[in-house]
Design a protein around this nucleic acid. Structure first.
Lengths: 248, 248
DNA sequence: CGTTCGATTGAGTTATCTCAATAGGCGTGG
DNA sequence: CCACGCCTATTGAGATAACTCAATCGAACG
């Protein structure tokens, strides 16, 4: 059936992400796919979820890139996390019922909508799958914590290097790294808002990373020249991404 | 029965925390209490959970204060979150199976141990309670995100003010604020590690907050002199603590 | 009563920011 | 097809928030 096929496609990225960490049964995959409601397309630079609004459905990112962010009164923005295809961007709105931050699209995106009602049923009928979904929200929290360390204690250069390293690994998982390159449709201002720096300073750090032949970020594409050197500089250790498969 | 009584006491703080946000049935409370295994006491400055170690139980903080933290190679430390009585400190180890950061005691603490096996049973037999536990891990994530904003974009003064504000509210929930004062058994170095600053600079910021008659932190105690002024300076808005009770 | 740890303060340093100017790329409309 | 305007990237120069180093002081502790 057509609808099922597209629902299957919609959850494909998520399924791959979960399977990288644990065993997902056929029934569980079906339960996920059958939970997908509408699939919609949204342009870049749009707010997908606004802070404080009462929610009754979640957004699964099928294609494109989105970010979560908060702003201060003077207009300063802080990006809290970047999301790639397959990320269940605001799954946490299911237990929380609202978000305390915004979610915005950075590129044109395709989004699968999953009603909270369906998720509730999953927690009742598929406890193991529910635990995996729980896990995936905690993976976001682990990324949040690594960013706290990064912004709080790493130098500007290491912060940028760390972010590009994290994205390299996460892009790799979803098959978007080819020949040590991956797409990164961000401006230097976005990068600054993600690292707690200024756009001007990010520019200088990128130049330095380029000059030291570690990475290049240009024209929306990142090229890794020296992965070991980059990881070393950033003190990047991917264990916080919980990539090993679980025992059992 | 004696054991039940002490288990009831052990989960009391958590129960209060959950009840501040949703309805918790008698059976659910019992299910929680009956999940408590050992209750143990640990001295200050000890590591309760070490990063990377495979885990099969969680720690519920009954009394005292603990923190999660990470360190860089050069010894710089970043505190990721502070936990108070009633916090289910490493509930996230249930889905994650290991942590990517350390958990250390800041004071003498009393800890209730809850085996993962019991939690698994809760997810199978008490889906609503399981969702509340999920919620409580996401509350930590919300705090993490607010810290990212704070460290990334607030001034040093506002960062310290924000942290003292957050703790004021959280201490209030568990009944530890009396007469605009609450206990805070941290050194200025700890505060620095939580805010991504230097101990020296934290000292100066504390002096400034004192001089401006906003807050005083001295002898392990915080006194709020001007709550509105403090909140204003910090741009502190407690909605990220999800304190409203859920509809239904 | 010496030792240690945390708090405090001064003085000089530096990483990062701010302001500002220039240049490149790209879309739109004449 | 060119010209204009806008957005992003780049670079220089000067400003400043936060850091480092270092000395003093007080309280706790054995």
């Amino acid at each position: 059936m057509n609808l099922t096929a597209s629902a299957g496609q919609a959850v494909e990225g998520l399924v791959r992400k979960l399977r990288a960490r644990d065993v997902l049964s056929r029934q569980e995959e079906e339960a996920l796919a059958s939970s997908v409601g509408e699939v919609k397309e949204v342009g870049p630079g749009r707010i997908l979820v606004r802070e404080g609004v009462s929610l009754s459905e979640c957004n699964l990112l099928v294609e494109g890139m989105v970010c979560r962010y908060k702003e201060l009164n003077d207009g300063q923005r802080q990006i809290l996390e970047l999301h790639l295809s397959g990320d269940f961007v605001d799954l946490h709105s299911f237990p929380l019922k609202r978000l305390e931050h915004n979610i915005g699209s950075l590129t044109p995106v395709r989004i699968a909508i999953i009603p909270h009602e369906r998720l509730k049923r999953i927690t009742e009928e598929h406890p193991h799958l529910a635990r995996m979904l729980w896990f995936s929200t905690l993976l976001d929290a682990a990324i949040n914590r690594e960013w706290i360390l990064s912004i709080g204690r790493r130098s500007a250069l290491a912060r940028v290097a760390h972010l590009l390293s994290e994205l390299h690994v996460r892009m790799g998982i979803i098959g978007l790294v080819h020949d040590r390159r991956y797409p990164l449709p961000l401006t230097q201002t976005d990068l600054a808002d993600a690292t707690g720096l200024t756009a001007v300073h990010v520019n200088r750090m990128l130049k330095k990373l380029r000059d030291e032949a570690l990475v290049t970020f240009r024209n929306g594409e990142v090229t890794i020249h020296d992965w070991d050197g980059l990881q070393g500089l950033a003190e990047f250790d991917p264990t916080y991404l919980y990539l090993e498969r679980r025992p059992r």
